Simulated scan of single mutants.
Amino acid sequence: MKKIAMVVALFVSSSCFASQTPLEVVKEYMGAWNQHNAHKAGTYLAKDVTYYDAAVGTPVKGNSDAEKNVIKAFIDGVPDLKWQMIGKPVYNHDIVAFEWVFSGVNSGEWAGSPATNKPIKFHGVSYIKVNEGKITYQGDYYDSKKLDEQLK
């Protein structure tokens, strides 16, 4: 009887995760960033996710590479980061697009450069596709020139 209860509980909990709306998934994913937990944020990414940062130009493919080379890199570079959705997101079925502001102090190494200990704050837009509770694509578009100027 205990085994049946455990199987039912597992099924119910996994179906709850899959039944989340794409917007709920995105908000929880952003929450993990704001908790400064790269691994937790990475759990919201599909194994074969494509993460495109327009400032870099080359997409990162795969969950572990996106977690390590994008999420962790940002969190390590700006340990007190705050990634905030502003305005009302636009979404249609499995796609969520929204404007955001990213802020914090560059007190850690970032992209091979030493910390500047300068505050940063820049705006951007993300386009995120969610399938069965996992992010399969993320595209981030922002003014990297403004960010570079803030880091000088």
Rank of each mutant, 00 (worst) to 15 (best):
T58D: 13
K72I: 01
S64M: 13
K3C: 00
N92G: 03
I95W: 01
D76N: 14
E67K: 07
D76C: 01
A54I: 02
E99S: 04
K3G: 00
K146P: 00
A115H: 07
V70A: 04
L147R: 08
G139C: 08
K47W: 00
K134E: 04
Q138W: 08
M6A: 09
I86A: 06
A5I: 15
Y141P: 12
N63R: 13
L45R: 10
I135N: 05
D148C: 00
E99N: 13
Y137R: 12
K3R: 04
I4R: 09
V78C: 04
M6H: 02
P114I: 06
A97F: 04
K27V: 01
Y44I: 07
V78K: 07
A18F: 03
G104C: 14
N69S: 15
A32W: 01
Q84N: 08
K47P: 02
N92E: 08
S19Y: 15
V60Q: 04
E149C: 01
M85L: 09
K72N: 10
D48G: 11
S13C: 14
S103R: 15
V101I: 14
T136F: 06
L147G: 01
A73D: 09
G62I: 05
H93I: 03
A55Y: 03
V101Q: 15
L81Y: 05
V7A: 15
Y51P: 02
T43K: 05
